[in-house]
Amino acid sequence: MSADFDAQGLALSARAFATSRLGPQLTNLKPANTLKWRRGKAHARAGTRNARIAFIGDSTTGGVGAIAPFNVPELLGARAKARGWSVYAENLFGSLDQVDTRLVQGGWGGLLNTAGGAMQHSNATGAPLAFTPTQAFDTIVIAYPRNGPLGSFAVNVDGGASLGTINQSGSAALMTTTFTVSLGVHTVNLTWAAGLAYVASIRTCNSAAKGLEIANMGISGAKAIDWISEAQPWDTLAALKAYAPDLTVINLCINDIINGPTPIPSFTTSMTAIVTAAKLSGDVVLVVPEQIGDFAQFHAAIRSLSAGLDVGLYDLAERWLGVAAAPEWMSDGIHPSASGYADIAEGLVPLLGA
């Protein structure tokens, strides 16, 4: 994240905090249901590995309504950085929901959902997929599907010599390959080599500065049921398990309300499956989103799941006391504005503590 973004993000958070209605925020957080997250942070402080936070949800997780990097995961990253953490929030998972000048798709496009939306793919010679995080890094981790006769792609930084070619043929799996480069700000280029090539995610970090790795896995239009697919190793829930976050923040139900509605028993079943999968590696916080449409039953279901599954709860609906009470935080009738996303991130800051 750039220094300009850090400053803007902190300024937005300060304004949001000053004007917030400050209803109930993070609740049901206990020593037992935050143990894995606290252990992850301890590892990061000890310099043994990065602690991982995954944000899963819909377009309000992705950041629609603002321009990247003004989304909740990266704005929380700015708050963490101000508290002394090394932060790696400029990661590409699937297709970006926001307008983001850090990504140039070139001859690549989106196809087949994974955690974060459609995977980037290419099947012909063309301009490379170019991703330029603003923060210095020396490590690149690329996740990609392997399956049957899939193709291959080459990797370089800054248009230099190839770091290697990734061959995606073989038995079905979600694979990762790590490349090491000189520490600095680079453009990661992926160039099609053969067949049908896919990439699920690109992550970067400075190996010498362990900290918080934050993943924005928002998928536009997603309902809860869209997050329980694991028929293939790269499907949404399978990819979340493979990422193995220490903490997963789950913000789903808006599309279940406005594009349905989904029957509450079905919604509850899907959400339970997501929480169960996320708890395999880490702890969980469920988000009650802003009040949109016929929300009452869905919000009640999420609050009940928090109690019944013993996971944390972030009640944004109570914090904002209804959309009508916080019009400056909405860009339209569904998506928050940059200021709204900043306030949502502000309410999550206590998770950064001990």
Score class of each variant (00 low, 15 high):
Met1Ala: 10
Asp4Gln: 15
Gln8Tyr: 12
Gln8Asn: 14
Gly9Trp: 01
Leu10Asp: 03
Ala14Met: 01
Thr19Ser: 14
Arg21Asp: 08
Lys30Gln: 14
Gly40Trp: 02
Lys41Pro: 05
His43Glu: 15
Gly47Asp: 13
Arg49Gln: 15
Ala54Ile: 09
Ile56Thr: 06
Thr60Leu: 10
Gly65Lys: 02
Val72Leu: 02
Glu74Thr: 14
Leu75Trp: 10
Ala82Asn: 03
Arg83Ile: 08
Trp85Thr: 06
Trp85Ser: 09
Trp85Leu: 06
Glu90Gly: 04
Gly94Asn: 04
Ser95Trp: 15
Asp97Tyr: 14
Val99Phe: 12
Thr101Ser: 14
Arg102Leu: 09
Trp108Arg: 10
Trp108Thr: 02
Leu112Asn: 14
Asn123Arg: 12
Pro128Val: 10
Leu129Pro: 04
Phe131Trp: 12
Phe131His: 04
Ile140Trp: 06
Ile142Ala: 08
Pro149Asp: 15
Pro149Asn: 15
Val155Cys: 06
Ser162Trp: 03
Leu163Val: 01
Gly164Pro: 05
Gln168Trp: 04
Gly170His: 08
Gly170Asn: 00
Gly170Cys: 00
Ser171Cys: 07
Leu174Asp: 09
Met175His: 08
Met175Tyr: 11
Thr176Pro: 06
Thr178His: 03
Thr180Pro: 11
Val185His: 01
His186Tyr: 03
Trp192Gln: 10
Trp192Ser: 10
Ala193Thr: 15
Gly195Asn: 04
Ala197Gly: 04
Ser201Pro: 03
Arg203Ala: 15
Ala208Glu: 13
Ala209Met: 13
Lys210Ser: 15
Lys210Arg: 15
Gly211Ala: 11
Glu213Ile: 13
Asn216Thr: 04
Asn216Phe: 11
Ser220His: 12
Ile225Pro: 06
Asp226Glu: 01
Asp226Cys: 02
Asp226Val: 03
Trp227Thr: 09
Glu230Tyr: 08
Trp234Asp: 01
Trp234Leu: 02
Leu237Glu: 00
Ala242His: 14
Asp246Gln: 01
Leu247Trp: 05
Leu247Ala: 05
Leu247Tyr: 01
Thr248Ser: 12
Thr248Asn: 07
Val249Trp: 00
Asn251Ala: 12
Leu252Met: 06
Leu252Val: 01
Cys253Tyr: 09
Ile257Lys: 03
Gly260Asp: 07
Pro263Tyr: 07
Ile264Ser: 08
Thr268Pro: 01
Thr269Leu: 14
Thr269Ile: 02
Ser270Pro: 05
Met271Tyr: 01
Thr272Lys: 11
Thr272His: 08
Ala273Tyr: 07
Ala273Gln: 15
Thr276Ile: 05
Leu280Pro: 10
Leu286Asp: 00
Leu286Trp: 00
Val287Pro: 00
Pro289Trp: 03
Gln291Ile: 12
Ile292Val: 11
Asp294Val: 14
Phe295Arg: 15
Ile302Cys: 02
Ser304Gln: 13
Ser304Ile: 02
Leu305Gln: 13
Leu309Pro: 00
Asp310Gly: 03
Val311His: 05
Val311Ala: 05
Asp315Val: 06
Arg319Lys: 11
Trp320Ser: 07
Val323Met: 11
Trp329Lys: 12
Met330Cys: 08
Met330Thr: 02
Ser331Pro: 02
Ser331Leu: 00
Ala338Lys: 03
Tyr341Met: 00
Ala342Phe: 08
Asp343Pro: 01
Leu348Lys: 10
